[in-house]
Design a protein around this nucleic acid. Structure first.
Lengths: 178, 178
DNA sequence: GCCATATTGTCAGTATACTGTCAATTAAAT
DNA sequence: ATTTAATTGACAGTATACTGACAATATGGC
């Protein structure tokens, strides 16, 4: 961040504020891009009644059948409290089913239903289209650069959020069956 | 987006899904960075009782005294409905005041209070620190590149969100006094 | 085996976001 | 001038997010 003033001397006068304090802040730009990304996802996937978060949860349950809510939250780095409601909605739509774990009475295991597997398969092209659209305005080389820097940044800042991502391999040694 | 399969022939078989369908999607990465950006902002600004959105609103009211809620929403590209609650909270904290417009009985004009101007002045260093922290893990040259690409992308996708940004100059010719 | 500790799912409370709607008011059309 | 359009702020409803708490259950140290 460049300094907001170029005063050569320290001063107690109020700093003059400009809109640059908003527009050039990376946090503001990330917020805008998130809004845009969600809007494009919803637009492309209107026919499927799935939000971006619900899609991510569905993909993860598909690749990790029998995962529980806490581990699901770690694999996609979504808040555990938030995920409770997401799971409820996916269950209400009958895209997933929950079964109590025989090993741990606290845990409820998550599985895709036929309808869930079906909608996941069908929504893929629309999701890809939305993801492509949000980078479309950039030149192909710039898209690659941005995606690379973004991936690095998310990874390097992993511990900064409440729910850091703990990918599959990081979960294996925590597993009840491993 | 790379194709999810490398099948040489069209097929009706279900596509094998991997976590890449989540992890490599730009929309997912933007969501993560937004989470991280908010977490860092809240952490650095804990002493000031201001959220990122409230901060952006306060900056804008500071640079546009007497702006109304609808124009405020256009200048920072936040949803009008959402902004109503944000304004209420800023008013409850006595950081802003609302006065009815003498020219238009529908409109309520927004002004910073002394306390609002004061908190805005005091929070600046913490905000700058948070913004710097989220890019810190990258090399300086990469930070510049990312910020540049991100700025371009937000600008070029401006119309994709519900509330496109209409900056100050775009508002002037809509103004009641212009 | 018992007790302190940790984990799981859940819940209440707050704060963004978006959709759609509405009454009051203003501006535009004719 | 009167009907029509658009605008403004507000509201209800849904969906993320995070904080902090809680009961039920598991696990570890001893």
């Amino acid at each position: 961040m460049p300094p907001r003033t170029s005063s050569p001397m320290p001063s107690s006068k109020p700093t003059p504020v400009t809109m640059d304090a908003v527009y050039t802040a990376p946090g503001y730009l990330f917020r805008r891009m998130q809004q845009i990304a969600v809007a494009l996802f919803i637009e492309e996937c209107r026919a499927f009644d799935l939000t971006p978060v619900q899609y991510a949860a569905l993909v993860t349950i598909s690749t990790h059948p029998g995962i529980d809510a806490t581990r699901l939250s770690a694999v996609i780095a979504f808040d555990r409290s938030t995920l409770g409601n997401v799971i409820e909605r996916l269950q209400a739509k009958e895209f997933i089913a929950r079964k109590p774990s025989p090993e741990d009475k606290r845990v409820k295991l998550l599985y895709l239903t036929k309808a869930g597997a079906s909608v996941l398969n069908e929504i893929m092209p629309a999701v890809d289209k939305a993801q492509a659209r949000m980078l479309q305005p950039l030149k192909p080389a710039d898209r690659k650069t941005l995606l690379s820097l973004l991936t690095q940044l998310v990874d390097l800042n992993n511990e900064a959020s409440r729910v850091p991502l703990r990918a599959e391999d990081a979960l294996e040694h925590l597993g009840r069956s491993g």
